[in-house]
Structure formats: C-alpha cells, structure tokens
C-alpha cells in the first residue's frame, strides 16, 4: 500500500480500500543534505527547494536527470556566475548528500497525490466534539445502531484518524442482505453475493451459493449501510468535523 498511485487508487476504491501512503523515515544522507541545503542554498532556493529568489529545483531538468550528484556537483562547485549563483567548495560526499535531499524532495512532490496514512490528527481535529455528540444522539440518530460504550468503545484507538474519518462517513466491505422470493412463493434469504440488472446471487444460511435470473424472482435487498448513505448526502462539512471530533473522544 505504500506505492499506490492514481491508477491504483481506482482499483483500491473498487476493492473497498483507500489510497493511503505510509511515510518512510528519511535516510541519513537525506537529512544531512537537508541541513546543508537549508544552511547554504535555502536563502535563494527556499528551504524546501521549491524556489524563492532562485529557481525551483524540484522541477529542474538537471536535478531530475542527476545521478548521485553527477550533474548537481559541477553546478554547486562552479556556481553559475551569469545567474549570480556563487560557487560552493563542497566535497563529493557533501554533494552526494545534497543530491539525496533534492531527489527526496522530488519524490515527495511526485507522491503528493495521496493522503498519508499517518496524516496528523491535529489537522483533522477542527470540529466541536459536543456538537458532534449532539448530532450523534440527535439529528443523525446514530444511536439507533451504535453505542459509544458498545460497538464504538475505543473506536479512536482502532483506526488511524484519517481512516476513522473515512470509515464513519461510509464504511466499506459490509455485505448486504437479500431475500429472494421464488415463483412458488418460497423465500430464500442470505448475504448478497452478486447482483446486476440480469441476475441475483446469494449465500444462504448454510453457506451455499445460489443464483436466479432477476426476471423470474422478486428481490428485496436490505443494505445495513443505507443510513450511512442517507447521511452522506446530507452532511455539512461542519457536521463531518464535529462528528469526527466526538468519535476521537472514544479512546
């Protein structure tokens, strides 16, 4: 799950999971390069190398074609007098660290198309927990199915903040229940295995798979997530942040 990109995100969505990258600890070379860059280069190129007085280096063709400082090195050592960039007398190992930092920064940009799995709680925690609680027991009628001391006890410890937010909004992976009424009047119930415009299939109470053409039977589907879907169409962003703040109190 640490290498998902745009295309894979669609697949993961179909599978009921979410794109969430983990942030790997940076290598020592990257950290050494960062310190060196920020002290010597940051004033002109920005501490994150995205440009300031000097150009953005993350999108620089030279940086992107560089291998371990082979192109960056000469520029640093010789400077670019015509562009007012001074020369820096760094040794090869320092150049290598600078290159490691710059390549890492380009990777950060490349992989910015995802919400990290460890996305910080404080960024999400902007709501009012008491308003969220009021919604839970009031307008949302969440307590019809859920209890903060029952199924939701400790829910904030069970999921990372970013996943808790997605999960309360619309939990994936829950099977729908279905009752099929045959032409004889006999009814078969079970978990819905598959349904399209033409056929319906279930697993009955004994675990056996059975299917019928839709035009021969009557089908009643019960979706345990129906209420979540109704609310998903109604929530304001304030509701979302308030409910999230409330659920985060359920440690």
């Amino acid at each position: 799950m640490c290498t998902l990109r745009g295309g894979a995100a669609v697949v993961s969505f179909l599978l009921g999971t979410f794109p969430a990258l983990c942030q790997k600890p940076k290598s020592e070379a990257v950290e050494r390069g960062r310190k060196l860059f920020q002290s010597a280069c940051g004033f002109c190129h920005g501490n994150d190398a995205t440009g300031s007085r000097g150009p953005d280096l993350i999108r620089s063709a030279l940086v992107n074609h560089d291998k371990d400082g082979n192109l960056i090195g000469p520029v640093v050592k010789n400077g670019r007098v015509e562009k007012d960039m001074p020369a820096f007398a760094y040794n090869n190992s320092q150049i290598s660290d600078l290159a490691a930092f710059l390549h890492d920064q380009t990777q950060v940009a490349l992989h910015s198309a995802s919400v990290p799995r460890d996305y910080p709680l404080e960024k999400l925690l902007t709501g009012d927990a008491s308003a969220g609680k009021a919604y839970f027991f009031g307008a949302g009628h969440c307590d019809t199915c859920h209890s903060p001391t029952g199924d939701l006890a400790g829910i904030a410890k069970k999921y990372t903040p970013i996943n808790l937010e997605a999960r309360f909004l619309y939990p994936g992976g829950t099977r729908r229940m279905v009752t099929v009424t045959l032409p004889s009047g006999q009814q078969v119930s079970g978990t819905l295995a598959q349904m399209d415009e033409f056929n319906v299939a279930l697993r009955d109470g004994t675990g056996w798979y059975r299917s019928w053409p839709r035009d021969r039977v009557k089908v009643e589907v019960r979706d345990p997530m129906e209420k979540h879907l109704d609310l998903l169409h109604q929530y304001t962003d304030a509701n979302v942040h308030d409910i999230f703040a409330y659920l985060e109190t359920l440690k």
């Binding site: 995100a9 969505f13 979410f18 794109p19 920005g46 501490n47 994150d48 995205t50 440009g51 953005d56 993350i58 999108r59 950060v108 940009a109 490349l110 992989h111 910015s112 198309a113 995802s114 919400v115 990290p116 996305y119 970013i162 997605a166 909004l169 619309y170 879907l229 998903l232």
Partner: peptide, 18 residues
Amino acid sequence: TASGKAEGWGGRDRNLWA
C-alpha cells in the same frame, strides 16, 4: 495536505461511495 509551497498534487481526495 501540502504545507509550504505545494508541488505536485498537494492533496488528494478519498472516494467514499460511487
């Protein structure tokens, strides 16, 4: 999700239902 000057996407959406 970006902090500082955003590069690339600078964020992402997470699909909930379709």
